[in-house]
Design a protein around this nucleic acid. Structure first.
Lengths: 240, 240
DNA sequence: CGAGGGTTTGAAGTGCATCAAATAGTGTGG
DNA sequence: CCACACTATTTGATGCACTTCAAACCCTCG
């Protein structure tokens, strides 16, 4: 692993998750003691499935891919996370081992909290446990949606839905968004092959009237895209 | 709703979930006050998606189907729960509304805890919050697996995998299990059509050498079934 | 017995995966 | 700044798994 330690002067990134809302000074103090903020390069594998859990990671910047590998070399994307997300917490409760592998998909800045320390903080500060519960139940809901999407939406619709979640709220016309990471990874994230992604994107362009230039997407009319993507779904835009 | 209230003398079902492990007398007392245990008939709809959340349900017995409905009438199964499972808790943290619908798939006995009361208990008893976190992270892991299964396993493998999770631990030869609910529901649970289920089951019979009589399944050699089902998966039997 | 739901079987269609190959894009060293 | 190597993306052709529609069968229960 290529890690470059940096002095950690702020907890902006931590606070961003909403995890430590309502926590008192004592908590931030105690956090500052054991944590480190690190810059980690694309391609670095943070840990693999089955490793003993050492840290909870809070992402400040960049992208992290969580995945599982099967016996015959296939890869299942668990999630792809970015700013404000955290992971590794689930290992705190089970057998203390990570249940997935983590790789840096785009250069990352992250805060690492030793897992035992994190656990202590939770046990001593109910507020944070509640915050975590709140976070977790939101994520569970998202996972439910994910499964629903896989079942009910076809490839072009899934891509459209993915784009919708990248759109800023409030605006409905002339939206410009950027795909967050390379298309192969987006494809994997959406549970399809790169070839399928390419073809599905082409269909989406035609049928929902959007324009794509590399990683840049131009959506002239949001309604058209929602109509196209969300019709097969149990919740309409904004789907959360 | 056809509800029949019954006096609630024991908290066996509550304790079964592991939710209240380590909680003191005060908690159980306070629970007994507001809760009721009820018998509810197959087909009853407990609530639908969007309803204001009133209770957390703890299942004592029977089966509950959680699902979402899409605009065009399709149905996506979120989960199918039984003895020891609980649901409705996620609504405590968000907008206080259920994010899915719940229907009784097989006659149920359940304990209903008013949501505000549950929330109070959590806030006052960190132990229970930790228990919930522990439960939630286990369920999240299961959902990860679920998504992986949908992606990597074909229909017969998914059925085999489902059966494996019904097998008692330790035994490897001559296992008898019973499918928990009607085949249409199993199919939906596994994300396939009833017709596909029927055909896939037929293939499974041939290729993994199991016998099926109605809802009864006879597995003469467990290893054969695990080899057949788990090869495409990132974790081998017993897969959690 | 006959009605109705659950289950199976058949035939045809669709969507995605796979394999193969061409093309575009990116970064490297000369 | 160009040529090369290497990777990402696109395009084409084909196959397979699952869906869909239709009809038969089975089972249970009034």
């Amino acid at each position: 692993m290529q890690l470059q330690s940096q002095p950690d002067n702020s907890f902006d990134s931590i606070i961003a998750t909403g995890l430590f809302d309502g926590a008192d000074e004592a908590v931030t103090q105690s956090l500052a003691a054991g944590t480190s903020q690190q810059f980690i390069k694309k391609g670095t594998v943070l840990f693999i499935q089955g490793d003993e859990a050492k840290y909870v990671y809070i992402i400040h910047n960049g992208w992290i891919k969580l995945f599982n590998e099967t016996l015959d070399g296939d890869e299942a994307i668990v999630d792809i996370l970015t700013t404000g997300d955290y992971f590794g917490d689930s290992a705190m409760f089970g057998n203390q081992c990570y249940t997935f592998s983590a790789e840096v998909a785009e250069d990352v800045t992250a805060t690492l909290i030793p897992i035992q320390q994190f656990r202590n903080i939770i046990e001593e500060h109910p507020v944070i446990a509640i915050n975590m519960l709140s976070n977790m139940s939101r994520r569970r809901k998202q996972q439910d949606m994910e499964l629903e999407h896989r079942t009910l939406q076809n490839a072009p619709q899934r891509i459209g839905c993915f784009m919708l979640r990248l759109c800023p709220e409030g605006v409905t016309k002339n939206i410009l968004i950027h795909l967050p990471y390379d298309k192969t990874l987006v494809a994997a994230r959406l549970g399809m092959q790169p070839e399928t992604f390419s073809r599905a994107l082409a269909r989406l362009k035609k049928e929902a009237h959007i324009e794509v230039q590399g990683a840049t997407v131009h959506i002239s009319d949001l309604n058209e895209l929602t109509t196209y993507s969300c019709s097969a779904c149990s919740s309409s835009y904004p789907c959360e």
